[in-house]
Computed example of a mutant assay.
Amino acid sequence: MISVIIPVYNVEKYLNECLNSVCSQTFENLEIILVDDGSTDDSSKICDEWSAKDSRVRVIHQLNAGLSEARNSGLKYCKGDYILYIDSDDSIEEDLVESLMNLIEKHNVDIAMCTHRLKVNGIVEKRPFNSKIITGTVNELLKFIFENGLWHAWGKLIKRELALEAKFIPRLIYEDYENTPRLLLNAKRIAISMDGRYIYSVRGDSIMEQRKKSTDVDFAKITDELLKLYEESNYSSDNKNFVCSFLFKQLVYNYHITISWNINKTNEFILYSRHLLRKEKSKWLKCSLISWKRKIAYLMIGYLPFLYDNIYRITHKARLNLDSQSEL
C-alpha cells in the first residue's frame, strides 16, 4: 500500500481538483491522508466530504501548526510501505502513482521521482511526455537533481523508513530545500522520470509567490546547515564542490532579490547572508566552480555591503523599474 499525504490549509478553491486527481489514480491500493491544518475556510468540510465518499480517505483535523508539522502528522499515522507527498493546490496525472511504483519495482530503487509541469491561470503547461528514465546512486545523480530543481518534497515516492528518518523541521520556511538533502543522504539508489506527471499550480496568493521580493532568514540558515551536511557527507569531492557552488549562488541570487526591494538595514536575511559569506569565506574561495567575478562580489557583500548594494541597485535600475511597472 502507498500512503499519500496531503497537507491542507485554506485551499477550498483547489482542493476538489487535487483530490479528484488522487482518488482517480490507476493504482488503487492507496491510503489518502488529509491533514487539515486548522483551515478557516471550507477546506475542512471538503476533506470530510471526500472521506465520506471514499473509504481510502482519512482526515486528521489539527490546530494550525504549519506545513512541516502537517506532513509530520501524516507520517505519524500512515501505514503504507511507500510515501508520496502532494500539495493540496496541485494535481497529478491519473497514472502518476502507478508509473512511480513501476520504477521502484523495475529498478529496485529507494526513491522514484518525476518532473513537473506548471499550471498558470488554470492552464497547464503543454509539454510532450518525455519517456526518459534516469537511474543511479544519489552520488551519481546529485548534480542532476539540483540542476533540474528536483528538491521539492512532492512528486517523490519514498520508501517508508527513509521518510520516517527525514521528518520535517517544524515552522521552517523553505522546508523542502532543507528536507530533501537529508532524505537523499540515506537513499542508495533512485530513479527519475522526466515525464512531467506532477502538475504544480502557480498561485498569486501562495506563500512562495509572496516571498519573491523578500527572502526569509530561514533560507540563509538552511544554507548554513546544508554546507555542514555536505561537507560531512560521503559524497564525492566533485559533488561537494558542485554543491558548494550551487548553495552560494542560490544564497546570493536571493540576496540580490531582497536588496532590490528591501532597503531595511536590519533585514534578518540580508544580515545573516553577509555573516555567512564572511564565516565560510574559505569554502567559496577554494571552490573551483565559482568564478573570480563572483568571488569578488561575495567579498564585497561580506565586507563592503553598503557599497555593493548601492552599485547593484544602480546597475540594475532599469530592470528593477521594469519589474516594478509589471506589478502595477
Rank of each mutant, 00 (worst) to 15 (best):
G80K: 02
K119C: 11
G122S: 06
K79P: 01
I92D: 00
F269T: 08
S282H: 13
D37K: 03
G149C: 09
F269N: 09
S51T: 02
I259E: 05
N234D: 15
L271K: 11
L164Q: 13
E327F: 08
I311H: 08
I145H: 01
K281P: 01
W261V: 10
I192T: 06
N102H: 08
Y272V: 05
A187E: 06
E98S: 10
T135C: 14
E17L: 09
N10G: 05
W292C: 09
L164I: 07
S193H: 04
Y177R: 11
A191D: 05
E28W: 01
N264L: 07
K53P: 00
L229Q: 05
D81Q: 07
H61P: 01
L75P: 04
N241G: 09
N264W: 02
E161N: 13
Y298I: 06
D110N: 11
D323N: 12
K240L: 10
S73E: 13
I222V: 11
K126T: 08
N239R: 06
K45D: 13
N108M: 10
Q250G: 10
D89H: 11
H275S: 14
L227M: 15
L271Y: 03
Y174P: 01
R313I: 07
H316I: 00
N148A: 10
Y235D: 08
N10H: 06
I2K: 03
C78E: 13
I301V: 12
V8R: 04
I133K: 11
K126E: 14
K13D: 13
A166S: 15
S131T: 09
G196V: 06
I32M: 10
E98D: 13
N234Q: 10
V138N: 03
V109G: 06
I104L: 14
D224Q: 13
E98L: 14
E98N: 10
I301S: 03
E231T: 14
S288R: 15
I60H: 04
S324G: 04
E327N: 12
I190R: 02
I173K: 11
I2D: 00
F269H: 07
T266H: 08
W154Y: 13
L277G: 02
E327C: 08
I145E: 04
D37L: 03
I259K: 06
L142D: 07
L229M: 10
